[in-house]
Write a protein that binds this DNA or RNA. Structure first.
Length: 512
DNA sequence: AAAAAAT
């Protein structure tokens, strides 16, 4: 409910149309929220809180720390931002002076997109209040962010790295922060943000309210919670590893080379107009997206090699319905506010079984039904077994009735050619794509490839290229991030092993 | 074995 619904048409049912039948009907008006906040909620047509909101809002208003187990789409964002706004409102200043607008609430998120979404929600909820909020994240010019920070804001939503950058440059001070939110804390640990988190937390006043949200409860998360939450109230909405019951899951076993065509077939057969396809690799996402476009399906890729502008443009185009297919890496698996999709497709089975749950959590939300389709091949049997073990259910094996594997004559050459990574090939830019007519490479050399890349003569036979070769060269002995290492006595992203040490020298469990 | 994030 806090999350903006995908379909904004008037006929769309609000996320929370049906309050739990056991509970008496609760309204936002029952929480004693300020009229300005209720007005913002009314503006958006929200009346009834989701379960997590109903639980979290009163607890946060009491000033208690919270450990929340909830995924995106449960209304978590409103669950913490509404009471935060309410609490800050009690001492809001209407003065224009920056000094009167110190940062009082800090919300940290693992990914940039999530930060933007949370910020949009906060802004909407606080629109009738004098509270100011802003979002800071990497990949964008610092200047605009700096101006806003220096102007004074009460609520900052940030990804950790860029926030530290601003702190170091004295663009922002966190000495007055009263409330800290760590959203998707498990994800932040996975991504090696712990050292950054520690540095940020060290800059906050000791006396503050802490809210931590996590989709899973690994031992690491529990340690983190113990280290900085004070007698937290545990709020749990749905079991973290439970798959939504309304999601119909089907897996299709196909030849590895056919995955692409099968995905295309599924999109056409089901006439999918809003679907996310997950790929395990950035390059795979780009290629599949390009292939779909060549077959006339409006598609775009989103992953970490895209510029921030491209990522935001793709997301927006998808939300607007300008593109039908968003091919994504796991940048979009969690947190991203793309929900209520009728269908999600796994082009690759995720290496982490848990990610499967997160991926298919994009569909079948709020009582709606959804389909999660996956294609896999022989070599993925193990991954599938892991997934089924985690979700404790067998997934239906689907039959591809009507799918005609392409018997390619010379056509196969085109297929292979466009699939192979080209030397010097870059991830395609979002902008030029729409203007580019579908192209075929009927065996001819791509015009833009410089001939000297391969020297004179026929193209060398290309063996199966490992995409990692296409990464920029990094000397193995480069003294990477040494400064950061000395600073925190912790290197970069070495999550699991270092966590115990960071959390205060807990005795290591005796195991190898 | 990959991806995400500060540059």
């Amino acid at each position: 409910m806090s999350e903006t619904p995908m379909n904004n048409d008037a006929a769309a049912v609000p996320d929370v149309a049906t309050p739990s039948p056991i509970e008496p009907t609760v309204c936002f008006a029952d929480f004693g929220l300020a009229p300005e906040i209720l007005r913002a909620l009314t503006d958006q047509g929200y009346v009834h809180p989701t379960p997590i909101q109903a639980q979290a809002i009163p607890v946060v208003l009491q000033g208690r720390d919270v450990m929340g187990a909830a995924q995106t789409g449960t209304g978590k964002t409103a669950g913490f931002s509404l009471p935060i706004i309410q609490l800050l409102l009690a001492h809001a200043s209407s003065s224009m002076s920056p000094a009167r607008h110190p940062v009082r609430a800090l919300i940290l998120t693992p990914t940039r997109e999530l930060a933007v979404q949370v910020a949009e929600n906060v802004k909407a909820y606080a629109q009738h209040t004098p509270l100011r909020s802003t979002v800071v994240f990497g990949g964008m010019d610092m200047k605009g962010q700096t101006v806003i920070l220096k102007g004074g804001v009460e609520i900052v939503i940030a990804t950790p790295g860029r926030l530290l950058d601003h702190i170091e440059q004295k663009n922002v001070s966190l000495g007055q922060v009263q409330m800290l939110v760590m959203d998707e804390a498990d994800r932040m640990l996975d991504m090696g943000f712990l050292p950054d988190l520690q540095r940020i937390i060290n800059l906050l006043p000791k006396k503050r309210q802490n809210l931590m949200f996590s989709a899973t409860f690994s031992p690491e998360i529990k340690k983190l919670a113990n280290s900085f939450l004070q007698q937290p109230v545990l709020i749990e909405v749905a079991r973290s590893n439970a798959t939504a019951e309304k999601v119909t899951q089907i897996v299709y076993k196909v030849d590895e080379e056919q995955k692409r065509d099968v995905v295309e077939f599924l999109i056409r057969q089901r006439e999918l107009k809003q679907v996310i396809i997950f790929s395990n690799t950035k390059i795979g996402a780009s290629r599949l997206s390009r292939h779909l476009e060549q077959t006339g399906i409006k598609a775009s890729a989103i992953h970490g090699d895209k510029t921030q502008q491209e990522r935001m443009a793709a997301l927006e185009a998808f939300k607007q319905g300008e593109i039908e297919v968003l091919v994504a890496t796991d940048v979009a698996a969690r947190g991203l506010d793309i929900s209520d999709l009728p269908c999600v497709i796994n082009y690759d089975l995720p290496y982490n079984a848990e990610d499967y749950v997160h991926r298919i959590g994009r569909t079948g939300r709020a009582g709606a039904s959804g389909d999660a389709l996956s294609v896999y091949s022989d070599k993925d049997e193990r991954l599938l077994a892991d997934i089924e073990k985690l979700i404790k259910q067998d997934i239906t094996r689907g039959e591809l009735t009507g799918f005609a594997p392409r018997t390619r004559g010379r056509d196969s050459e085109r297929g292979e050619r466009s699939e192979r990574p080209q030397r010097g090939e870059r991830v395609e830019r979002g902008g030029e794509r729409s203007e580019r007519p579908p192209r075929r490479f009927e065996g001819e050399a791509r015009p833009e490839r410089p001939a000297r890349s391969y020297g004179a003569g026929p193209l060398p036979r290309r063996e199966k290229v490992d995409p990692w070769f296409l990464k920029p060269y990094e000397p193995a002995n480069a003294p990477r991030r040494e400064a950061a290492a000395t600073d925190t006595s912790n290197g970069p992203a070495k999550p699991k092993q270092k966590i115990a040490a960071l959390l205060g020298g807990l005795p290591k469990p005796a195991q190898s």
